[in-house]
Simulated assay, not measured.
Amino acid sequence: MKEKQKFALVTGGSRGIGKAICIQLAKDTDYKILINYQGNEAAALDTLQEIHKIGGTAELVQFNVGDAADVQTKLDAWHNNNKEAIIEVIVNNAGITKDGLFMWMKPEDWNSVINTSLNGFFNVTNHLIQKLLVHKYGRIINMVSVSGLKGTPGQTNYSAAKGGIIAATKALAQEIAKRNITVNAVAPGFIRTDMTGELDEKEFKKMIPSNRFGEAEEVAHLVSFLASKNASYITGEVININGGIYS
């Protein structure tokens, strides 16, 4: 029987931590990388070029994780074109923030954050999980946040979304462990990306025992380890990567 081509899908893979994960997986593994993006095709193409530069293989797949119909249509079309392929690693990284005090939070700011992060996890993972169960091997890695563990004022919506994924990670891990599929969450603290670009790094550093922001590449190394066979006995875990800010 012909060996299946093996892919790793990274949602929100065009920028920031997602981009670093795509590049690291291409360096460390034999996976072909599926770079998911929603609107920023230029950034996605840039990630694609960087992977090609280091000798990796990747392709783009455009869909909005928060739109279940879009996820299904695009992934089904991809599977139809890649009949000999299996998406063995799923990195649920796509997420957005709409910060503001809860008392003034608009319903759309609540719903859009929950929809992208929490429902996005469901839409992508639920659609792909049956193939993983039949395949009897897989890695699901959910990008969460320190906000989902300790709660961050001004981010009630984001904290709720990430906290929901943390609980889902622990439950799903127990359901599918017998099939050699691990489910883990990675919880970054302050990482230097576009998302933290607005923050006063000098001020925030004082809160961090390591006295610095983390780099996206440091998070990517952890994800790459969890995606490997070396991490087969780790499942249902939430791994903090935050310079000691919260443990």
Results as ranks from 00 to 15, higher is better:
residue 107 P to Y: 04
residue 240 N to P: 07
residue 222 L to D: 13
residue 165 I to Y: 02
residue 135 H to L: 07
residue 160 A to F: 06
residue 11 T to F: 10
residue 224 S to M: 11
residue 41 E to C: 06
residue 149 L to I: 15
residue 3 E to W: 02
residue 196 T to A: 04
residue 92 N to A: 06
residue 17 I to F: 06
residue 4 K to R: 15
residue 48 L to S: 04
residue 182 T to L: 10
residue 147 S to C: 14
residue 149 L to Q: 13
residue 50 E to W: 03
residue 38 Q to C: 14
residue 51 I to P: 13
residue 117 S to D: 07
residue 194 D to C: 04
residue 60 L to Y: 02
residue 198 E to G: 14
residue 113 V to K: 00
residue 74 K to L: 01
residue 121 F to E: 00
residue 74 K to D: 01
residue 125 T to S: 05
residue 56 G to Y: 00
residue 79 H to C: 05
residue 179 R to F: 15
residue 81 N to I: 06
residue 2 K to P: 08
residue 146 V to D: 11
residue 188 P to Y: 07
residue 5 Q to L: 13
residue 195 M to P: 08
residue 109 D to G: 05
residue 129 I to M: 14
residue 73 T to S: 12
residue 243 G to E: 13
residue 166 I to F: 13
residue 153 P to T: 08
residue 195 M to I: 12
residue 42 A to R: 05
residue 122 F to G: 00
residue 72 Q to H: 01
residue 62 Q to N: 10
residue 133 L to Q: 11
residue 122 F to C: 01
residue 101 L to E: 10
residue 89 V to I: 10
residue 147 S to N: 11
residue 92 N to T: 00
residue 130 Q to H: 12
residue 20 A to V: 07
residue 175 E to T: 13
residue 76 D to W: 00
residue 106 K to N: 04
residue 90 I to Q: 06
residue 192 R to P: 03
residue 186 V to C: 09
residue 125 T to W: 02
residue 96 I to P: 02
residue 151 G to Q: 10
residue 99 D to C: 05
residue 43 A to G: 11
residue 147 S to D: 13
residue 117 S to F: 02
residue 151 G to H: 12
residue 234 I to F: 07
residue 201 E to Y: 01
residue 55 G to H: 08
residue 34 L to I: 15
residue 246 Y to I: 11
residue 66 G to D: 00
residue 80 N to W: 01
residue 216 A to I: 11
residue 140 I to E: 02
residue 136 K to A: 13
residue 91 V to T: 03
residue 87 I to N: 00
residue 80 N to A: 14
residue 66 G to Q: 00
residue 110 W to V: 03
residue 174 Q to D: 09
residue 160 A to G: 09
residue 245 I to Y: 13
residue 171 A to M: 08
residue 161 A to T: 01
residue 141 I to Y: 08
residue 184 N to K: 06
residue 168 A to V: 11
residue 103 M to H: 14
residue 170 K to S: 05
residue 48 L to N: 10
residue 119 N to Y: 00
residue 234 I to M: 08
residue 66 G to V: 00
residue 9 L to K: 07
residue 49 Q to H: 09
residue 195 M to G: 03
residue 172 L to T: 07
residue 1 M to N: 13
residue 113 V to Y: 00
residue 73 T to Y: 06
residue 178 K to I: 12
residue 75 L to V: 01
residue 116 T to V: 08
residue 109 D to K: 03
residue 17 I to M: 09
residue 136 K to S: 15
residue 184 N to S: 07
residue 27 K to Y: 13
residue 155 Q to V: 11
residue 238 V to F: 04
residue 49 Q to R: 08
residue 186 V to S: 13
residue 186 V to Q: 12
residue 150 K to V: 06
residue 170 K to F: 12
residue 245 I to F: 11
residue 11 T to M: 14
residue 27 K to F: 09
residue 137 Y to F: 12
residue 232 S to H: 03
residue 212 R to C: 10
residue 100 G to I: 04
residue 234 I to A: 02
residue 129 I to E: 03
residue 195 M to K: 06
residue 163 G to C: 09
residue 242 N to E: 14
residue 17 I to A: 02
residue 58 A to Y: 07
residue 154 G to S: 09
residue 63 F to H: 01
residue 106 K to Q: 15
residue 59 E to L: 15
residue 137 Y to K: 15
residue 96 I to H: 02
residue 238 V to E: 03
residue 52 H to G: 10
residue 67 D to G: 00
residue 120 G to M: 00
residue 132 L to Q: 14
residue 191 I to T: 13
residue 111 N to R: 06
residue 218 E to L: 09
residue 232 S to C: 02
residue 243 G to W: 11
residue 168 A to W: 02
